[in-house]
Simulated scan of single mutants.
Amino acid sequence: MVSFIPGIELSRHFYEDVVKKLIDRPHAAALIGEGSEVLGFDQQRSTDHSWGPRMQVFVSASHVNEVSKAIEHGLPAVYKGYPVRFYSWQTESVRHHVEVTTLDHWLSVQLKIDSHTELQKDKWLSLPQQHLLQFTAGAVFHDELGELTRMRKQLSWYPTDIWLWMMASQWHLIGNTEPLLGRTVEANDGRGSLMVAFRLVRLIMELCFLQEKRYWPYLKWFGTAFSRLRVASEIGPVLDRILGSSNHQDRENAVKQALEIVAERHNTLGLTPSVIPKFEPFQVGINDAVRPYRVLNAGSYVGACKSAITDETIRMLAHVGAIDQLTHVDDALINFTSWPDRLKHCYKAEMDLHITN
């Protein structure tokens, strides 16, 4: 068995030792796009399909054919014990995986954007974080053109108003979910209580990603990526208590502690005036009804985020969240359907309502 080499490291050496010597035109070279190795999460198990020395090489349109031919004829059969040509599920054939293209073509196919047009608000809201992560993670091995580095920086995080609205939406989702924990316990619904607790854990973890300005990946790598956040060592054990407790009071206490952590971290961001976390009986909002479940004043964090948004069309949107907050984003939806593009039009239509009104 060949000794395992992390994919980024393997591809970096492959570029330096082999591919670079085959290109005599201005270019950029990187490992981005799909694959656990792009995220830095690959293991020996990852090598069982579509894994090996690979990369993207970006050149001008006039040089694509020339560089493609040079690479096709110059690549070895094996590199560091790994086949250079291996199965591609995209083409259902065995081929090398040094993709030679233009940056504009890659962006058009993978993200449905181009490098010459500023992203509009509706596009930001409908771009799956997995796609943004695939472009901004990985590694750049060479970029004498500078365009790839510029675009990665441009897409490294959301514009501030979009970011604030997404955090407002996340606080709204947490605020709507938290009182259900006490209600399910009161109804003697142990299974329902666990489901609500697990939902809260997911929402809190998502908020942690937002607060640290990190795109979250799809479910397979969500927990792994979360473990690398700065807050993980502090809040992780608390979330584990929520997930592992069989006592509803212990679970509720752990939820309170976790929410206190993200509430205080909200204040350290300095994006809004500080909000003091308070836990008070749940106010239903109808007929002055008050229930005895002590919940965080999540609405205050929603309001603080919204008040800091300068773009009124974003501030006035209902708190449904961007595509990853609104949907169960999976491979089928984001890669094989037109749903992201349809949602882009939906977000635009909602914002247009506030312009016309």
Rank of each mutant, 00 (worst) to 15 (best):
T47W: 03
Q257C: 04
A28G: 10
R265Q: 15
S11G: 06
L22W: 01
R315G: 02
L119K: 04
V201T: 07
S246L: 15
N357K: 15
W157N: 12
K153P: 00
P277H: 02
S36F: 03
D48S: 11
A29H: 00
A187C: 11
D288K: 11
V275T: 05
F198K: 11
H105L: 12
Q283R: 15
G223N: 12
R12E: 14
W89K: 14
K121L: 15
T160D: 10
A304E: 02
Y158G: 03
K213W: 10
R294Q: 15
G321C: 06
E234I: 05
H172Y: 15
P6S: 11
S156A: 13
E34S: 15
Q129T: 03
R228N: 15
D352I: 12
M167A: 08
W216F: 14
S307C: 12
L22D: 00
E66H: 06
Q90Y: 12
T91D: 12
R45W: 10
R199T: 10
G182N: 04
K121P: 11
R230T: 14
D143T: 02
L259C: 03
G7R: 02
Q56V: 07
L103P: 04
Q170G: 07
D250M: 14
L111H: 03
V231W: 08
Q257Y: 05
P237E: 05
D161C: 07
E37L: 08
R265Y: 12
A254R: 08
S300I: 00
G81A: 06
Q170E: 14
R230P: 09
D17H: 07
T310P: 00
L103D: 03
E260P: 01
S245I: 03
V38D: 00
L107C: 02
L164D: 04
S108R: 11
K69R: 13
N188A: 15
S156P: 04
Q90F: 11
R315M: 06
R265T: 03
P26Y: 05
G244W: 09
E186G: 08
V2S: 08
Q43K: 14
T160W: 05
S126A: 14
P26S: 06
K69I: 05
E72V: 00
I162N: 04
E72S: 10
T313A: 10
E350F: 14
T310I: 06
A332P: 03
L133P: 02
L326Y: 15
R294A: 09
L353F: 15
A322E: 10
W339V: 11
G223Y: 10
Y87D: 02
P53I: 02
L173D: 13
P277K: 03
F41G: 02
P26A: 05
H172W: 12
K112Q: 10
Y215D: 05
R294N: 10
Y79S: 04
E280P: 00
A254M: 10
D17I: 00
I323M: 02
W165A: 04
K153T: 08
A322W: 09
E206H: 09
L119A: 03
V329Y: 00
V196E: 08
S46I: 01
N287L: 15
F141T: 01
S88G: 11
D114V: 02
L127H: 01
K80G: 02
D161N: 11
T101Q: 08
D311T: 09
D352A: 12
E234Q: 11
A263I: 00
Y215N: 03
T310H: 12
S11A: 09
T313R: 14
H96T: 01
Q283K: 15
E264A: 11
A254Y: 10
A29K: 01
E206W: 06
K220Q: 05
